[in-house]
């Protein structure tokens, strides 16, 4: 038996923080997109196990660009977190600065990824390793592009003063999506760049 219903209190209208349908909807999106990357990485591991270590490119993928790039992406997440903290305290300047910094860092990540791509001596069609590498990192880059587009929208809306201390659901949701994209990169990064090191 559930407890009696509590009426007679002020209920927020629309959304208040995570008390919104949008928050739950985004969690659903993250679940399904997270699954997509799980299946992508499963495909990599499945083929890698069957092909053995000789299948990996020689030398193994270098951390020279990917390592710093990972830090750049993580830094962008911190910026988004800082931006949201700003609007919660009614500091619109902090919101704008944080979002702008995240967009710049995200774009830098993309640029370095393109550089990394162009330095590879294998291609999408040269073998199954290349197919997996370019499709999986490509999927992630597509998500980064979408994430930047979302941050740009949120930035634009923030600049026009659409959000207040209590009403900034798009900032919360856009931020969560961006964190998700960053976490996915950690898995992609670990799979392609770190796991070959484990087997020497």
């Amino acid at each position: 038996m559930a407890e009696a219903i509590r009426y007679g209190q002020d209920l927020p209208v629309g959304a208040r923080g995570r008390n919104s349908t949008g928050w739950w909807g985004l969690l659903c999106l993250i679940a399904t997109e997270g699954s997509l990357f799980a299946y992508l990485l499963f495909s990599y591991v499945y083929i890698a196990i069957q092909r053995g270590s000789a299948w990996l490119p020689d030398p193994h993928p270098s951390l020279k660009l990917a390592g710093p790039n990972t830090l750049i992406l993580l830094a962008s997440s911190v910026c988004v977190w800082w931006a949201e903290r700003g609007i919660k305290r009614n500091h619109r300047g902090q919101l704008l600065a944080g979002l702008a910094a995240a967009v710049i860092l995200g774009t830098a990540f993309l640029g370095i990824q393109v550089l990394e791509w162009s330095g590879k001596d294998f291609s999408l069609s040269s073998g199954s390793y290349g197919s997996l590498y370019f499709v999986i990192t490509g999927f992630h880059m597509a998500h980064v592009i979408v994430g930047i587009a979302i941050l740009l929208c949120v930035l634009g809306w923030s600049a026009t003063g659409a959000f207040t201390r209590r009403r900034h659901e798009p900032v919360t949701l856009g931020g969560l999506y961006w964190h998700f994209v960053d976490v996915v990169w950690l898995f992609v990064f670990s799979t392609f760049y770190l796991s070959p090191r484990l087997i020497g």
Binding site: Q50, L124, S125, G127, S131, V135
Partner: peptide, 12 residues
């Protein structure tokens, strides 16, 4: 695009 996910020679 001639990738090699499902072919027997390179993929699975």
């Amino acid at each position: 695009f001639d990738t090699h996910f499902f072919d027997a020679s390179q993929g699975q």
